[in-house]
Design a protein around this nucleic acid. Structure first.
Lengths: 218, 218
DNA sequence: AAAAACCTAACGATCGTTCGTTGACAAAGC
DNA sequence: GCTTTGTCAACGAACGATCGTTAGGTTTTT
């Protein structure tokens, strides 16, 4: 009969959380605090599991005060998911643009941005990957369009690598993209800033994995 | 069928769902229907997002009637998560036991059971991977112990492969296990029975990926 | 003084759960 | 053969708690 939603630390959906939101997209003023708290609670307890009252209390506010800054609970989630998608695309795109044009270098660059996003913003990643279903059909369309940018970029790199003969051709490139994407997505579930390995070390290892996966030793 | 994923399908947390529960562990009588419905709704909407009234209605029952069969909403989730963990371990263990003792064959066997579980029981996989946080500390302990069995098996295979010289040694075996595990876990999010590739084809491709990842060509 | 930020109070809806009851049906006693 | 008893599965009604949200007033900041 006791209803308890919270639980031990090792049961949470992610391992740590200091840098909650990317600095450049966080709003100013009281909106920032609300958004950060909502991010943490949505990620830890799920959208439906975190109430407006939970968020308000964690902000040191009363529930009604939130509505002066955000129109609804769903809009909070929508904004967070949009920020998450935009930040992910920004990170993989910038990495790929800065890379040499060889397919293998582009693949390594993508993995770098992809893994870094999930290690640095695990809570945003959790929302993007597990809470899309709580959004209305309208807001979901926006989110899916943003997500498509990132997956298209990876698929393009993989197809181009196969076409140029830089990667093996004995596999379906969509499956390879799914596998490489999955490796990085899962990082959000276990990486914490106290991990024995640094983000850069993890990235290097995962780059190696991705290169081998497409048939290139490197 | 080629299957371009529609945006409506893509919003859900998993792609399809026919074989909801493994036949051998499903209870008999009216409990079976309730458990299957709860599995579907918990997986689609999250534990907190699916209400007892939703489940009852989908069963053609009234809310109160559920309590003749299950003591609480949380017990429903706990049983599903336990079934999920047991089935996963059973599938990977049986595959590995049937395999030749060479590390590479054991790795391929593990990937086979791992991927097959996530493709055949995507809803169970979703609960196991994303709804643990809704469980009480007590029930979570049971679940984590079951999960440890599976991860220990994979880590043992990877360490043994490195020790015997069958796998490369230039990577952290824990990171390799995380990557190989992640590849399979994500399958639950996109595989559906109408996918252009069969489960066996996907398994073969992912076996190749895993072998390359540990430094072995095939 | 104007604007921004926050408050109290409450609305109707829904939440998980409990209570006492009902009809169906099979075994047991007369 | 007929009643009694017991079990099973399901029911309507309701409990207190909590949900997202709103209206209107007060405090704080500029």
């Amino acid at each position: 009969m006791p209803m308890h939603i919270t639980s031990a630390d090792n049961v949470r959906r992610l391992a740590s959380a200091t840098t909650a939101l990317p600095a450049d997209v966080t709003p100013t003023g009281p909106k920032a605090g609300i958004l950060n708290v909502a991010l943490r609670l949505f990620a830890e307890q799920g959208y439906a599991g975190a109430s407006i009252r939970d968020i308000a209390q964690a902000c040191g506010l009363k529930p009604a005060s939130l509505y002066a800054h955000y129109a609804s609970k769903e809009q909070l989630l929508a904004q967070l998911i949009n920020i998450g998608h935009e930040e992910h695309f920004k990170m993989v795109q910038e990495a790929v643009i800065d890379a040499q044009p060889e397919p293998l270098e582009q693949l390594k660059a993508y993995v770098s941005g992809h893994v870094r996003f999930h290690a640095e913003f695990p809570m945003l990643a959790t929302l993007v990957n597990h809470e899309l279903h709580a959004l209305s059909a309208e807001e979901v369309t926006t989110a899916l369009k943003l997500r498509e940018q990132s997956t298209d970029l990876l698929m393009h790199i993989l197809k181009r690598g196969q076409a140029l003969g830089a990667f093996a051709k004995d596999y379906d490139h969509w499956l390879a993209g799914a596998a490489i994407g999955a490796m990085g997505i899962r990082v959000a579930n276990w990486y914490s800033e106290h991990h024995e390995k640094s983000i850069d070390e993890i990235i290097r290892t995962y780059q190696t994995f991705a290169c081998r996966l497409v048939g290139q030793g490197e």
